[in-house]
Amino acid sequence: MNHLDALPPWAAVLVGVLVLLGAGFAFVGSLGLLRLRDFYKRVHAPTLGTTLGTFFMVVASIVCFSVAQGRPVLHEMLIGVFLTLTTPITLMLLVRAALYRNRVEGQQRVPPPR
């Protein structure tokens, strides 16, 4: 762990808190995936991990590498930008697929097709 020891104390505490927050949000999101009862409720849970969970982890990584290397290391930002653009697409497609399947079967209460 010698490269982490090179961080100044404030950066070490900041990175630690950010990493814990990011992992915490991702964990709560996945727990929601397990605890909520039906599919349309569960769809909302993973967004926690893709928004704030990813945000905190990316910021932690940026702070850690920028302070350790003494110059701005920003390419982690691409992960954040990419996830914010793609998550809506995947979730939207999944909900539409689920809605279509439920309509075809006609079991669950879903809005009727137009």
Binding site: H44, A45, R96, L99
Partner: peptide
């Protein structure tokens, strides 16, 4: 969709 709790369906 990015806001947890609401999702765009159609």
């Amino acid at each position: 969709t990015s806001t947890p709790g609401t999702i765009w369906v159609d």
